[in-house]
Design a protein around this nucleic acid. Structure first.
Length: 787
DNA sequence: GAGTTTGAAACT
DNA sequence: CAGTTTCAAACTC
């Protein structure tokens, strides 16, 4: 998985990336009427876990309409299930299009930007309108299950007859709970996995209790739960929900930001051909996959039957307008990959979410390589591409206070490994979100339980059949572990650019992998930030922008082995440690008592949090990018050198090969343009570098010449029927030669020759033997040596 | 390789 | 915010 370039991130509209406007799906609605639409995440509020589900059951209203069916629920509606509400006054329109055909798409489309924030005072939470379209659109008639988690699950729905059956298997249902919560249920995929759209639950409050103020204060949540036909809505599923939220800043004072929360009840098993759908919108990510899809192409898919490492890159920089997330489809033997794209189009807001779903029935040729989420970019959209190494079983967005970015908790699903026939709901509350490897047959791993140092050994195979960018991840950066600890919520804005999320270990749900790390490892497979050229083009993904890392181009440093640290006291959890400061794991370092690894994610996360508390820009590159290139690069803080004259590597400016600037507080600085000392040092350094290069070139040339010589001579000898002379020195030849030499020795002895003469005779005979051997080479395979 | 110097980071 | 301490890298011998 590779990373999103910060340049692209910077292009994301603030209203999208501003996490202040993004509320965790599990965050309880604000009680304060004065609360605005923006969420106020607190450090004390725990990061929602998969198990965090509404405790209050809610009434669901079903609504189906002609295609494209638009289901709208008034917040005041407390109609029990079955009642159809089609209120067109919704502020937000969610259009879900599902189909078993690859061309199918799921579209989220807010009606207008303004309507996102406008809410009828009487409504509690649901002025949003949700439209569910399943191919040809069907009336909602499928049975659904209302779970205790405020989620409604429609079990598998039979495909609609007719020629359009293939595209109209989806079924949608909208339900409204007494608490004013709204659920949209649909089936996606041939197997009919239902999708549950859950509006924000109001806790124990009833719809009547919620007033306008609260409706304003609370963002609207939509939870989309996709459940395979064999899946059941249960606590277990709640734990495995993948949630994604997309918040829109409240423009006026009406409704809070609308959040689309897509949760997924992970199904188990890839043993059957049934499709397991996981939709993940981590603010900008939707991921679906089939357990039976082979990883031939880059897909937004996940293996539900096996827990696998998933990595999503979330750049802490300004978000790009478009984010593409691609998760590697799991490889299931003998199962052609079939994809169903479910675009979520939020055209009015410039938000577009493309959700791709892989089903078990469609051929791989229909596979769309990427899964995209477009957010905000009305103009030239930028793309973020995320390539999870393996399909995430669970993804949960994590709101970081003060952060403008979403973090995604990637939790490997604990799926039932043996049975794929779960036809009845499972209420296994004991299931946890802790990652575990279920399917060991696949080349996958559960990253959270694998130390970073060992990751290279368990790297999933890159999926490059279609020219995608996925490569093998050999290393990993972990900036922030996914922990439920509320206090460990750093300001993600200041994490290294292109931060990537990876599953954590233990209770850690994710790890953050900065972009530099990814680019450092050119062969890595985690995240690729596509340029604006387009998300679907592999080249565009490969030509990801590289950021300067402390003055050094990451591209240049990509192949440069990272310098190992030698930390002894800091546990590599302080910025003293370069590895930690660069957002990297310690790997092949000489540090002692190192905590900068996946095994100590909690401590590491705390340390990160502490660093960010001290300095919100602690993880930002110190060397800012200049306007016109390197000449304009400058240290963000400046140095404070006192004795080095800023002409030694003690000086960060000098180390970065930049000159000190007005921001520096150095004393006796000699690191300026006209400094003769600096020029001298530069010349010396250049000369030394030239020498090194020349030596390296000489070595390379020599090696090349030797290699060429070997490759040139060997085939000539072998192909020409001849063999190197030494190859004729077989055992027999050696014996004969020795006999010849002994014969000379005996003759010398018989003739009573002096020892010197005897030795000369022997040596001369040995020379003749060698000459015969050499001359015999190429003439015959069995040279005859006669004394 | 051991010891020293240095300045950023951390701490008070 | 300033002064001090800690720390690990850079440097010297």
């Amino acid at each position: 998985m590779d990373v999103v370039s910060p340049e692209l991130n910077s292009l994301l509209p603030d209203e999208i990336m501003d996490t202040e406007a993004i509320i965790m799906d599990d965050d309880p609605p604000s009680e304060s009427p004065a609360a605005s639409g923006q969420s106020q995440p607190s450090d004390d509020s725990p990061v929602p876990m998969e198990t965090d589900v509404p405790a209050v059951p809610e009434i669901v209203s079903l609504c189906s309409d002609a295609p494209p069916t638009q289901l709208t629920q008034a917040g005041t509606t407390s109609t029990p299930t079955g009642s159809t509400l089609c209120n067109t006054t919704s502020a937000t329109q969610l259009l879900l299009t599902s189909s078993t055909v690859s061309s199918s798409s799921l579209t989220l489309r807010p009606a207008t930007a303004s309507t996102l924030t406008s809410t009828t005072p009487k409504t509690t939470s649901s002025l949003s309108r949700v439209s569910l379209t399943s191919g040809g659109l069907q009336k909602l008639s499928a049975p659904f299950t209302l779970s205790a988690n405020h989620q409604i699950i429609l079990n598998k729905v039979a495909s609609s007859p007719g020629a359009d059956t293939a595209r109209s298997q989806g079924t949608t249902t909208t339900t409204t709970t007494p608490g004013g919560q709204q659920f949209m249920v649909t089936t996606i995929g041939k197997s009919g996995q239902p999708i549950v759209l859950q509006l924000p639950h109001t806790g124990s409050k009833s719809a009547s209790v919620q007033g306008l103020g609260e409706a304003k204060a609370n963002p609207q949540h939509f939870k989309v739960v996709t459940v395979s036909s064999a899946s059941q809505v249960s606590t277990l599923q709640a734990q495995q929900l993948k949630t994604v939220q997309i918040a829109k800043k409240t423009q006026v004072s009406s409704a809070g930001p609308i959040k689309f929360v897509f949760t997924k009840a992970v199904n188990n098993k890839g043993l059957t051909a049934q499709t397991s759908v996981s939709n993940v919108i981590t603010g900008r990510v939707l991921s679906t996959s089939s357990p039976v899809t082979p990883p031939r192409t880059i897909t937004l898919s996940e293996t539900l039957g096996s827990s696998s490492s998933s990595k999503i890159a979330i750049s802490p920089l300004k978000s790009p307008s478009k984010l593409t997330v691609v998760s590697v489809a799991s490889q299931v033997p003998n199962s052609p990959q079939k994809s169903v794209s479910l675009p979520l189009n939020m055209a009015h807001l410039g938000h577009q979410i493309l959700l791709q779903q892989s089903t078990a029935t469609s051929p791989a040729k229909t596979m769309k390589p990427v899964q995209t989420v477009t957010v905000g970019g009305v103009g030239a959209p930028q793309f973020k591409t995320i390539f999870p190494l393996s399909t995430p079983s669970n993804v949960q967005q994590i709101q970081v206070p003060g952060s403008r970015f979403h973090y995604v908790r990637l939790v490997t699903a604990t799926t039932g490994s043996s049975t794929g026939h779960a036809s009845s709901p499972i209420t296994n509350s004991s299931m946890t979100a802790k990652p575990m490897v279920v399917n060991t047959t696949q080349v996958r791993m559960s990253v959270p339980i694998v130390p970073a140092q060992t990751m290279k050994q368990v790297v999933p195979k890159p999926l490059t059949s279609s020219g995608q960018v996925l490569t093998t991840q050999t290393q990993q950066r972990l900036i922030m572990p996914a922990t439920s600890l509320p206090q460990i919520q750093p300001n993600l804005t200041n994490l290294p650019p292109g931060t990537m999320l990876a599953p954590g270990s233990g209770n850690m749900g994710y790890a953050v992998l900065p972009a530099q790390y990814i680019t450092q490892l050119q062969q890595s497979a985690y995240v690729t930030l596509a340029s604006s050229s387009g998300f679907s083009t592999p080249t565009g993904i490969q030509t990801q922008a590289r950021l300067p890392l402390n003055g050094l181009s990451t591209s240049g440093a990509a192949f440069r082995p990272r310098k190992p640290c030698n930390c002894t006291k800091s546990q590599c959890l302080k910025l003293y440690c370069d590895c930690f400061a660069n957002g990297e794991f310690c790997q092949n370092c000489n540090c002692t008592n190192c905590f900068n690894n996946l095994e100590h994610e909690t401590d590491r996360a705390k340390a990160i949090k502490a660093c960010l508390d001290r300095n919100p820009e602690a993880f930002k590159p110190k060397i800012g990018k200049g306007k016109e290139g390197e000449s304009d690069r400058r240290h963000s803080k400046g140095c404070n050198c006192k004795r080095s004259g800023c002409l030694k590597n003690y000086c960060e400016c000098y180390e970065a090969k930049i000159m000190c600037s007005s921001t520096c507080k150095c004393v006796g600085c000699k690191n300026f343009e006209e400094s003769p000392e600096r020029k001298t040092l530069m010349h010396l350094a250049d000369a030394a570098e030239v020498r090194v290069q020349q030596q390296t070139a000489a070595k390379t040339k020599l090696s090349s010449q030797i290699s060429d010589l070997l490759t040139r001579t060997t085939p000539a000898i072998t192909s020409g029927g001849g063999r190197m002379p030494y190859t004729f020195v077989t055992k027999e030849v050696a014996e004969v030669t020795c006999e010849c030499l002994l014969e000379q020795a005996e003759q010398a002895e018989l003739n009573q020759q002096p020892q010197a003469t005897a030795e000369r005779m022997i040596l001369e005979e040995f020379g003749r033997c060698l000459m015969r051997i050499i001359s015999s080479a190429g003439k015959t395979d069995c040279p005859s040596i006669n004394c």
